[in-house]
Design a protein around this nucleic acid. Sequence first.
DNA 1: TGTAACTCCCCTCCG
DNA 2: GGGAGTTACA
Length: 681
Amino acid sequence: MFATASVGNERSWRTGLDAAQLEAVTAGPGPVLVIAGAGSGKTKTLAARVARLLEDGADPDRILLLTFSRRAAKEMLHRAGALTRVRTARVWGGTFHAIGNRLLREYGHALGLPASFTILDAGDASDLFGVIRTDLGLAERGRRFPRKETLVDIYSRVVNAQEPLAQVLKERFPWCEQEADGIRDTFAAYLERKAELSVLDYDDILLYWRALVTDSHLDARFDHVLVDEYQDTNVLQADVVAGLVPDGRGLFVVGDDAQAIYGFRAASSANMIGFPERFPSTALVRLERNYRSVQPVLDVANAVLADAKGIFDKELRAVRVEHHAARPTMGQLADESSEAQFVCDRVLDHRERGVALRDQAVLFRTGHHSARLEIELARRNVPFVKYGGLKVLETAHVKDLVAFLRLLENPSDELAWHRVLALLDGVGPASVRRVIEHLALPDAAALRRFVDGGAPVPKRSGADLDVLRATFAACLAPAGDGEPLGPAQEIEAIRITAAPLFEQRYPDAAVRLEDLHQLEGVAASSGSRAAFLADVTLDPPTLTSDLAGPPLLDDDYLILSTIHSAKGGEWDVVFLIHASDGNVPSDMSLSTQEGLEEERRLLYVAVTRARDELYVTYPLRYYHRPRQLDDAHTYGQVSRFLQPHRSLFEQHVEAQPDSLRRSEITGGPDRVRASVAALWS
DNA sequence: TGTAACTCCCCTCCG
DNA sequence: GGGAGTTACA
């Protein structure tokens, strides 16, 4: 359908490209490294490159486009499709994890991987570490063995950065160093248990994929590999890429070291900086003209980056000529409620003046920073979608549902049994263990036997047990015509039959069951149960149903997003809220210089999302004061990265409410007075 | 012995 | 607000 765009209006991939973009698009087969500043037409360039390759006769099934979100891949292929008559449907596009998953299902047998494996999300992985931690007797009283979440973090760091455990402990988890032996044991047990359960975690997908491209002797699967956001790849991902195209022929990567914001996931812009050395014949192209923002916005971005360390010199210059472009606004609000109201008011103002809601975005450092705003938006009936933050998969009831589905997929999945059986009133870890022993896992027929014969649970759990058996029975027994149920129908059956279990567990069961209802739609588009489970693990939909409700397709809605999830996005009007020191930079990142620098780049990413107007706001006062680790930072004061550059903003200072007593001002009255006084001195 | 109830503590970013 | 750890009860 997109191909029609070119009919009668001969649009080709060359249309509207500037010299540098054209150079990148037409550069030889590769290796090509494109260093693309913010707003320099990176997406357009990648899309045009794909279109050009297709027009030159490349086989779409042998083109791979790796991005950081499924959304980005979709958008790029959509745009490529509009630039050529060749169909883009068969081009491979997606995240490293999604593509890795797909390839491992197809070729994993070459590595001896089981045909069907399930994927552990971060929560499952930490549950497994919790079990191991207890089994090995490391959770005993009075002992300060790392928490299961910490174990996952350490493990993931070791794997993703490919650093020895001792080094990781020393540099990043010094308080765990004396437990190194125990940690080593848990890691060994973790590997064993994953193999027994036929599960892979997120890191395994990359590890096995790398093994697939480096150790096995499969012929090259792709002729062209294009990678977006290359500055945010880690060692493992860079190895995968290099393995896909060993001599770099066909490789095209795009990145911006000033936008490297995934250090916590072991990403390193060293991959990008070192690219020309790894691939000596690299053609280097720089995209430097900013087409996105007006100059006053770029002035702020440049100021933020000017103080950065270890970044190539960059000075963003606006191509757009807007003589009356306003300066960005810095809003100092009395408290979080005022901030939410301020943002709502301005959003609605802009809409009145013709800027659709979907051309506006509100960005923040962490998922819960939007809580106040979400309530205010819901109160005023302003529809919104939120990216980032809590994912549906991380909520208890959805994990329950997924556990049901995982058992239907793989009846030997012990972790899923744990979760499902724990729904029964009166059943705890001990009963679960008994049931699992009774079921004699692994056994493909275990679920059938459970439905037919029950299981040893305490007497008072009997009624609940019957509900559970009935639920599985409803999923196993095809309705009437013998056609097996699809994933959506299974969810429906679980939601309805197991409703009593959810109702006794969750006081707000009605809302949660409605969430499950919503998931039926997602499942319906996934095709198979296995595909749905992979989708929901690798590309979890964000949770929106609780307040404003999921916007209807084609509806106009405001975008709420963490800064991380906003990467690659752009909007006419951008609000950055909670821009206080301690939030941006986050107080958790202050201990190291590299952490601090990453926070600076994060702010840079946020600022450069704005086309026309930028608002940076922060509340003077938090009623629930964020914790303060030391005196090096305060809340209620604007980010240290912006403090010296206040003159680049219009100032909006809200009067303090009468109820605000001097002693209550976060950060101390003197500092606040000084920051206010700085406005007119 | 195992579960429920209670208390305390800590809270990032993502696939 | 939720998870981990501890105590009280069946």
